[in-house]
């Protein structure tokens, strides 16, 4: 049976949210359950077995990519800077892939939209340039099919499950 796409069970607003100019962080863990994490530089939510594809910078994420390849456990948190609206996706069986043209386009688009959002909040252009200081060919994709989504917006409902694959 093919994996259930996230769009089949997650509210479309949240699907748009994870593909927008929000802050992204991806985590995994090694065989001894030591967690590690890295920044995400764009995200696509595709149908079918392609699942969710998060762009990361390979040289910044050596341990994470190793842990994804060996264990496949993954969690990703998305947060809207300024409102703190946030969502966490969890899944297993994640893999590391080389980005295709659409992934690269997604990274370019993310750079624009995230920069625009941060600049509107008064973050300095120099800081943003530093944040996006990576080589395009250093990008990798963490691809997985999410099985659960949790609300992470601070407050009493933080951590509650807002969806899972049927």
């Amino acid at each position: 049976m093919p994996p259930i796409p996230v769009s089949a069970w997650l509210d479309p607003d949240w699907v748009r949210f994870i593909e927008g100019g929000v802050s992204i962080t991806v985590a995994s863990r090694d065989a001894a359950n030591v967690p590690t994490l890295t920044k995400g530089y764009g995200c696509r939510a595709l149908d079918g077995e392609h699942g969710v594809r998060i762009l990361v910078v390979g040289s910044h994420s050596v341990e994470l990519l190793r842990d994804i390849e060996t264990g496949g456990a993954v969690a990703a948190v998305y947060s809207e800077v300024g409102t703190h609206r946030a969502l966490q996706l969890k899944g297993s069986g994640a893999r590391v892939e080389i980005p295709d043209a659409a992934d690269r386009e997604c990274a370019r688009h993310y750079r624009e939209s995230f920069s625009r959002n941060l600049a509107a909040l008064g973050f300095a252009p120099g800081l943003l340039a530093g944040y996006f200081d990576y080589a395009d060919d250093d990008l990798r994709v963490v691809a997985f099919v999410p099985s659960e989504a949790f609300l992470q917006t601070p407050g009493p409902r933080a951590g509650s499950k807002i969806g899972s694959a049927p």
Binding site: S28, V34, P35, T36, A75, A76, V77, Q88, Q152, P154
Partner: peptide, 20 residues
């Protein structure tokens, strides 16, 4: 810039969240 923390449940499920 808010910090982010990753932890791991005993069953190996990672968790990632913002730290105030």
């Amino acid at each position: 810039i808010p910090a982010v923390i990753a932890t791991c449940a005993p069953d190996g499920t990672p968790n990632v969240a913002y730290a105030s």
